[in-house]
Amino acid sequence: MSTDPGIWLAAILTLCIFSFLYKDNPFYKFVEHLSVGVSAGYWLVIIIRQSLKQTFLDPLIQGQWQLVPGKLGIFLLIFPAFMGILLFTRFSNKWAYIARYPIAMLWGIGVGASIPLSLQNYIIRQLQATMVPITFNSWEDVGSLFIAIGVITGLVYFYFSKEHKGAFGGAAKVGIWILMIGFGSTFGFTVMARVSLLIGRVIFLMKDWLGIIS
């Protein structure tokens, strides 16, 4: 059995969480609230120490931003911080609408960057990978043909502007079968990942804490 207080603490917290399998109880609630506090504190430290310090505070203290030298650079650094401070107007009933300006900026930058990227990554690259020459020289070509048929029928299933009848309905049916195999495979992967985490926790309890297995 371990004599390390850290291992003991981790083991007790692990057992407290597993106690939820019986029913909701104060031990689980304790760890649940502890988890919220610790993770919020952890991420606060990480974003202040790494993100805020490296991208904002350090260049500001040095008075020099490598990306845009000179006073303009300092202004371009202070501006987002000013917008960030405006977020706190949400605590005032009278001035809460001002918080919309930084939120609008975040949304604007986010959607502006996402339009070409989502079209590029989710549509053009997927089409490029699907539309490959098929020469039937190898079994891989059969697989590529299968994928192409699967993608087309899958898209047909998602097209709801036309009734799924006749040949179109048949294609949609094949599409849903393909989609179900995809969902099943993904589910299988997810289950195995969770089971592997569970095995990890059991090994921790049995090996690191109790020392029953070597």
Binding site: S114, I115, S118, L119, N121, Y122, I123, Q126, L127, A129, T130, G143, F146, I147, A148, I149, G150, V151, T153, G154, L155, Y157, F158, G175, I178, L179, I181, G182, F183, S185, T186
Partner: peptide
């Protein structure tokens, strides 16, 4: 194969929806 086909069809839907 089928998993890749399903994911590509879903990705295309996601891409169009996101855009």
């Amino acid at each position: 194969y089928p998993n890749v086909a399903a994911k590509r069809a879903i990705f295309m839907g996601v891409g169009l929806g996101a855009a």
